[in-house]
Write a protein that binds this DNA or RNA. Structure first.
Length: 143
DNA sequence: GCTTTTTAGCCCG
DNA sequence: CGGGCTAAAAAGC
């Protein structure tokens, strides 16, 4: 497994790759190594707001439920948000269960968990709310 | 399997 | 603005 970290205006980001698949993305973590240049460029362009979709291959590990939630995130259009509650209704589950699944998301940004917000608050985020705000800002969401 | 714990939410006073 | 509540999934047994 190869990991490489990059520095953004919100702190550093560590991306891990295995056999050409991205397996993990972590905030505020540095790591030493190099990953596929194309993957890195895609991600950086996304963070710059130049690119709106991520097409690299990923390898996902999680429970069936978690995967269901994570893939559902990819149906939220760029620049849009949804509440935990509405997503829960859509998937026939509860808001808190959604929160649990999002917390366990190994590939934030690729699975855009930052597009899920609370009804009357921002909700939480792995790596801190600053990241969430930054990502939403880049996508042009009104906070 | 059943029971306990945990939760990045929600609603109501 | 706090407290209490709830449902559901994961962890533990």
């Amino acid at each position: 497994m190869n990991c490489q970290s990059v520095v953004t205006r919100c702190g550093c980001l560590c991306i891990c790759e295995e056999d050409g698949y991205v397996v993990k993305i972590e905030f505020n973590r540095t790591c030493d190594g190099k990953i596929d240049k194309m993957i890195l460029e895609q991600l950086l362009d996304y963070l710059r707001g130049v690119r709106k979709d991520l097409t690299f291959q990923v390898k996902v590990s999680g429970t069936e439920f978690q995967k269901r939630v994570w893939y559902a995130l990819r149906n939220i259009p760029y620049g849009h948000t949804i509440t935990y509650k509405d997503l829960a209704i859509k998937l026939g589950t509860s808001p808190r269960a959604i929160g649990q699944a999002l917390k366990a998301n190994p590939l934030p940004v690729y699975f855009p968990c930052h597009r899920v917000v609370g009804k009357n608050s921002l909700g939480g985020f792995t790596g801190g709310l600053d990241w969430k705000k930054m990502l939403l800002g880049t996508e042009g969401c009104s906070l």
